[in-house]
Design a binder for these strands. Sequence first.
DNA 1: CGTTACATGTAACGATCGTTACATGTCAAC
DNA 2: GTTGACATGTAACGATCGTTACATGTAACG
Lengths: 204, 204
Amino acid sequence: MLTRKEELTEALIGYLLTHGLSDLSLRPLAAELGTSARLLIYHFGSKEGLLAAAMDAMHSHLRGTLQTLAENDAQEGDARVLRQFWDWAVAAENFSYLKLLYELQILAARHPETYGPFWQKATAGWLELIKGLLPADKQKAAIASLPIAVFDGLFLELMSTGDRQRTTRALDYFIGLVEEVRLNRAAAANKQRQASTRKRPPPR
Amino acid sequence: MLTRKEELTEALIGYLLTHGLSDLSLRPLAAELGTSARLLIYHFGSKEGLLAAAMDAMHSHLRGTLQTLAENDAQEGDARVLRQFWDWAVAAENFSYLKLLYELQILAARHPETYGPFWQKATAGWLELIKGLLPADKQKAAIASLPIAVFDGLFLELMSTGDRQRTTRALDYFIGLVEEVRLNRAAAANKQRQASTRKRPPPR
DNA sequence: CGTTACATGTAACGATCGTTACATGTCAAC
DNA sequence: GTTGACATGTAACGATCGTTACATGTAACG
């Protein structure tokens, strides 16, 4: 059975997803949750404790759904994983979560003391998860940063413009770029291998 | 000579650049500017008018420095323009401006009524400017979105992590990708042209 | 000198903020 | 039945918010 604090936390997440966290205020929140500011403080200790509880719950939720996504996509070890992740992110039930995460990131950049720990906790885990999806030779920091940045930038634009079609096409264009380079390099390596002596086995 | 409102606006921008605009408050602002909340309202009419004046001034400033950048780079019509733009953006005197713009973008996504017009005005002009730097065949919306998204995503990461080296390398990696594809396509087109009959002139 | 427009200072208004003091209800356990 | 832990309601505290009323200064112009 859920304790009162836990069900409040769930409702609280729903509220944050639609109202954001930059201008969170206890009394309007309490009104919408059918409780009082007094009780929110009672259960969470303070506004900061309330935020911490919400972020923790949000973090585990995201981690959970991302984990299943990673397991399902483990076999498709390509740049297309990025597309799968994008489809997951723009799904209605996940979109608000990510929107909140980006808001948190901006807040953390401006107020590291207050929001920095929340953002670190929220992203540390899932960035590792994304890197885990990349092929081993792509895990060098700078190279791994690029697909993440593409995702971030396009999601940011989707948030602002709502233009899902254009942002999705831009992502596909990026994936196409990466694929094209991969194929060209493979072809070039193949040709060079044929031209060389056959004593050495082909590089792995 | 500067009117009082104009010099207040300049000082105001400096304040916004370091303190952000999500938690702007008149009295601390006035204290740092050596004036009073009373006078800020007197000069700008309201807090919103104050924001509008600051955003207008910021917008013209950005527009000015971007214009000269565009003119200097006009000859280098390549993906490398993106790198020039990046160097401009991470320069100390411009970095805070862009940081503020991204904060504005997030705020606008959450409160379109309040911040939406500011963000539109700030970005509408300069996105056109970026598109103008791209070669004509790259101006299709989805394709133009990609370099912008790369820039946005990397800048966001730079804001959060401060890791200039990694983000810059990631950008160079992206530029390298685009260049590689461009060269491969040119080579392929060249080969095909040589193999075909010579009756038709090469496609432009 | 008087008038007029602009600038500034003091103080307060009503609203909202996070938080707390204090009292009361609920309900299971002993 | 009493005790005790948890939950809740009412009301207020002090702080800060954007904004305003009212009075005063300043300086140019007639």
